[in-house]
Design a protein around this nucleic acid. Structure first.
Length: 347
DNA sequence: TCTGGGGTCCTAGGACCC
DNA sequence: TCTGGGGTCCTAGGACCC
């Protein structure tokens, strides 16, 4: 019997801030870009549950969050702190199963198939994990239990915060039926719109679509969707991720056409990315440049680097050449980014 | 209202090779 | 004159996730 647990921390970043600074408890806290009196350019990373009452949510432009509640407490992202907390968390989880997939700073899947024999035992394990994390890290989480990653993931989101949802295999279809299609991981705004226009609002509706139609609209992903809406997911936990690309990007404080600023920033981004690749003992064989104009139109140009092009000066020169055609456009530039892919171990 | 930064995966056309 | 089929690599774009 396969039994998967998915754990998702509750409002991870803001909960950590509230833990570190007790006076923040019970208050609307927003972690993300700084609002700068409503003129900030970033987005909300995490909003505390108190902040969510004002309509503030992650991914939202910080300027809007500021408008919704200027009195909320806006904090910058303390990535080092969250990373450290995340590592502690994952160490705790590893004591409950050796088979674990770390899915971001605040999420993990545990395969309990070898640890328990039924859902009652699994529920007991889940409760132990929750109390262990609360005791050791002073944080709450929500957990989903199910016969596969898909069900476990949707279940963990079903009751938040501090929830525990158990979905036995025979209840999977009934559990999924009433949920809106966008609850399916991988169904974002675009797919939701396509489906909604076809009159498909819930996962039960999705089940009425023939496999061939799903393939027509969504290609390979459509075939997966056909199984997903029936609660079928055979995918294994990914216990070890290998890095496939590494990059840096930055949104300018204000849109710019200043070539000096653009090229200086470009060089910085390359230096930073090369430094982080170096710590992994990797080098990239392909360099991609990204430019976003004021109107948010975004383009990329990439180039396979010459053999053994490990030379920073050479890479910067290539980046410069990739950038030049973008500068012929009259639109001010909002963001630039670089990314290395086709990574190889450094010989 | 105005949209971050780190990534992954998929698609599609053209080049090139057998 | 009309023109294969398959595989792989490269590039560009887009959807999505945390």
């Amino acid at each position: 019997m396969r039994l998967i647990l998915h754990l998702d921390m509750d409002a991870f970043f803001t909960s950590i801030e509230q833990r570190e600074h007790p006076y923040l408890k019970g208050k609307p806290v927003v972690v993300g870009a700084l609002p700068k009196g409503g003129r900030g350019r970033g987005v909300v990373s995490t909003a505390s549950y108190e902040a969510r009452k004002f309509g503030i949510h992650s991914g939202q432009p910080i300027s809007i969050a500021y408008r919704l509640n200027p009195k909320a407490i806006f904090l910058p992202v303390n990535f080092t702190l969250y990373m450290r907390t995340s590592q502690n968390l994952m160490e705790i989880l590893k004591t409950y199963s050796e088979k674990i997939e770390v899915a971001g700073l605040d999420e993990a899947y545990l395969d309990l198939s070898q640890k328990v024999t039924n859902y009652e035992e699994a529920r007991f394990e889940a409760l132990k994990i929750k109390s262990d994390i609360l005791k050791k890290e002073k944080l709450t989480c929500s957990i989903g239990l199910g016969p596969n990653k898909l069900i476990a993931k949707i279940a963990s989101d079903f009751k938040k915060p501090n929830g525990l949802t158990v979905v036995k295999p025979e209840k999977a279809e009934v559990f999924l039926s009433p949920l809106p299609v966008e609850k399916i991981p991988g169904v974002g705004p675009k797919s939701k719109e396509v489906l909604n226009k076809l009159g498909i609002m819930t996962i039960a509706d999705l089940r009425k679509l023939p496999e061939a139609s799903l393939q027509k609209y969504f290609g390979k992903w459509g075939l997966r969707l056909y199984e997903t809406c029936r609660g079928i997911d055979e995918s294994e936990l990914i216990e070890k991720w290998e890095i496939k690309s590494a990059g840096r990007e930055i949104t300018f404080e204000r849109d710019t056409r200043d070539h000096n600023l653009i090229f200086a920033t470009l060089n910085n981004l390359i230096e930073e990315t090369l430094a982080s690749l170096k710590t992994e003992n990797l080098r990239g064989q392909t360099l991609a440049l990204k430019v976003r104009y004021r109107d948010f139109e975004t383009h990329t140009k990439q180039k396979r680097l010459k053999e053994n092009s490990d030379d920073q000066t050479e890479i910067k020169k290539t980046a410069r050449e990739l950038m030049l055609p973008f500068l012929e456009d009259k639109r001010p530039i909002r963001l630039i980014g670089v990314r290395f892919s086709k990574l190889l171990p450094n010989g």
